[in-house]
C-alpha cells in the first residue's frame, strides 16, 4: 500500500528520544498519528497522543492502519508480533541489527496475519505533501516535493539524495519507498515496484539499488513487463568483494550480488541505469519523452 494522509499510524516506542523527535515531525507534517505504545507508560499522554501498553490494546481504543516501530533490536520481534496480532495492515520497521532469525519469524507472523512489513532497517515511507512514517526529512522542501516519480531505495541516505536530485531538477515524488538495507526484508524492491506500478499517481519509477543479494535482478524481471518508465541507480560499483558495506545486505559474496549482474539485468529489462545519481533526471526525461508519457515535471 501507498501511505496516505488518512492512514492512521500507531507509533511503537513513541516515548523514546528518536520516537518523540520523529513523531512530532510527522504530526507537524500532517500524518494521522493516533497513539503510541510503551508498556511502562500506558495510560499517559505523550505529544498529545494516548499511550497504550500494547498494539493489541491500542487497536481497541485507537484503531490504526499502520504501526511504526522505534524499537531496539532485542525487542523488535515481540513488537512486530504485537502489531500483526493487533491487525495492522502495514508495519514499518526502522530497527537495524535485528537478528536474522527474528526477522524471519516476524515475516512468518506477518504472512499469517495478512500484514505487510516494510523493513527492517528501512528509513520509512514518504508521500510528499501528504504524510510520512519514519526517519526521512519529509519536511525539507528542498528534498521532497509532491509529483509523479515513485522512488524505491534500500538506503535511507541514498533515497534522500535521489529525491533531492529529482527535486533540484523539477521532478516531484509520488511516493518514496524505503525497503531497507537488510538481506531479508518484508517488502522487496520488486514488491515495491508492483505497488508503485499500480498507483495511478505514479508516472515513472526510480530504483535506488545497491550491491548484494538479488533484489535488483528480481525487480528487473517485473520491470520488463511494465508500461511505466523505470530508471535505476545501483550503488557499490567501486566496492571491494567480500566486505559488508555498512548494510548487512550489501556484500558481494561468491561472485553473487555484484554491480555488473544487477546493471546487466536491469538494462536487459529496458531500465535505464544511471552512472551517478545526478544522471537520473536526464535519463528520466529521455525515457518519458520516448514513451510519450504525460509531463511529470512540476
Amino acid at each position: 500500500m501507498i501511505l496516505r494522509r488518512e492512514h492512521r499510524i500507531l507509533v511503537q516506542g513513541v516515548t523514546g528520544k528518536q520516537g518523540s523527535f520523529w513523531t512530532r515531525a510527522m504530526i507537524d507534517y500532517g500524518a494521522a498519528a493516533v497513539g503510541g505504545v510503551n508498556p511502562r507508560k500506558a495510560g499517559t499522554v505523550h505529544l498529545g497522543l494516548p499511550v497504550f501498553a500494547s498494539a493489541v490494546e491500542a487497536a481497541r481504543e485507537a484503531p490504526f492502519d499502520a504501526a511504526l516501530m522505534f524499537i531496539p533490536p532485542a525487542m523488535a520481534r515481540q513488537a512486530a508480533f504485537d502489531a500483526c496480532e493487533a491487525g495492522a495492515r502495514l508495519v514499518v520497521c526502522l530497527t537495524e541489527h535485528i537478528p536474522a532469525h527474528d526477522v524471519m519469524e516476524m515475516l512468518a507472523a506477518a504472512r499469517a496475519n495478512g500484514t505487510r512489513i516494510v523493513g527492517p532497517n528501512t528509513a520509512g515511507l514518504v508521500t510528499p505533501g501528504e504524510t510520512f512514517a519514519g526517519i526521512l526529512p519529509a519536511f525539507n522542501r528542498r528534498v521532497f516535493r509532491p509529483g509523479g516519480v515513485g522512488v524505491i531505495s534500500r538506503s535511507g541516505s541514498l533515497g534522500t539524495l535521489v529525491s533531492l536530485v529529482l527535486t533540484q531538477h523539477g521532478y516531484g515524488q509520488s511516493a518514496v519507498y524505503g525497503v531497507g538495507g537488510d538481506p531479508i526484508v518484508g517488502t522487496t524492491t520488486r514488491e515495491a515496484l508492483e505497488i508503485l506500478d499500480a498507483d495511478p499517481r505514479t508516472e515513472a519509477v526510480v530504483i535506488c539499488g545497491e550491491i548484494g543479494g538479488s533484489a535488483e535482478e528480481e525487480a528487473a524481471e517485473y520491470a520488463a513487463g511494465m508500461a511505466k518508465p523505470v530508471v535505476a541507480f545501483v550503488a557499490g560499483r567501486t566496492s571491494p568483494p567480500g566486505k559488508k558495506m555498512g548494510h548487512a545486505g550489501a556484500i558481494i559474496a561468491g561472485g553473487k550480488g555484484d554491480y555488473r549482474s544487477k546493471r546487466t539485468a536491469l538494462e536487459a529489462a529496458g531500465v535505464a541505469v544511471a552512472d551517478v545519481p545526478s544522471d537520473i533526471p536526464g535519463l528520466l526525461s529521455a525515457v518519458t519523452a520516448d514513451r510519450r508519457a504525460p509531463p511529470i515535471r512540476r
Binding site: S155, L158, G181, T238, S239, G246, V276
Partner: peptide
C-alpha cells in the same frame, strides 16, 4: 552518512 550514500559517493569519485 548511510551505507548507500557512502557507496554512491565512492562511485561518483571513480566516475
Amino acid at each position: 552518512n548511510g551505507a548507500g550514500l557512502t557507496m554512491a559517493t565512492m562511485d561518483a569519485i571513480a566516475h
